[in-house]
């Protein structure tokens, strides 16, 4: 079932290319920061799922809220002449990489645990039980 989110990603991208929707260059940076926020939420969701702490409400609300807020903050920063855009990029970038690191560690730990379990279950060479069989 892991292919379902991948399929959703492909369908969304195809829809975007087919509909040929474009945004003005002036708003391109806001969409960029919104995408970065969406990435952060997705990776956060994956991490929470792996840590068995996933909550759909938190995930969905976080996705929409973070995405919208990132774009709005970038817009406000542009209006004020403050580079809130860069601040958002740094903040979300750190979080994304942090989440990726945690996901990687969890996968590695699980892999190690699985290997240890398999090694402990597997019969050792020259053991009495093996001789009897």
């Amino acid at each position: 079932m892991i292919w379902l989110p991948v399929l959703g990603l492909v369908l969304g991208a195809a829809l975007g290319f087919i509909t040929n929707v474009t945004i003005p260059l002036a708003y391109s940076s806001y969409l960029s920061i919104a995408i970065l926020a969406a990435f952060d939420t997705v990776f956060g969701g994956v991490r929470a799922s792996l840590e068995r702490k996933f909550d759909s409400k938190v995930f969905l609300s976080g996705f929409f809220f973070n995405t919208a807020m990132a774009a709005i903050l970038a817009y406000i920063g542009a209006q004020l002449g403050v580079d809130l855009y860069l601040a958002a990029v740094v903040a979300f970038g750190v979080r994304v990489f942090n989440n990726i690191a945690v996901i990687r560690r969890i996968w590695l730990n699980r892999h190690n645990e699985r290997t240890q379990v398999q090694e402990s279950i597997a019969p050792k060479e020259g053991s009495p039980s093996a001789d009897t069989q």
Binding site: L11, A13, I35, F63
Partner: peptide, 10 residues
Amino acid sequence: VMGILGFMFS
């Protein structure tokens, strides 16, 4: 969420 993300990305 991934669908929306793909759409935004494209």
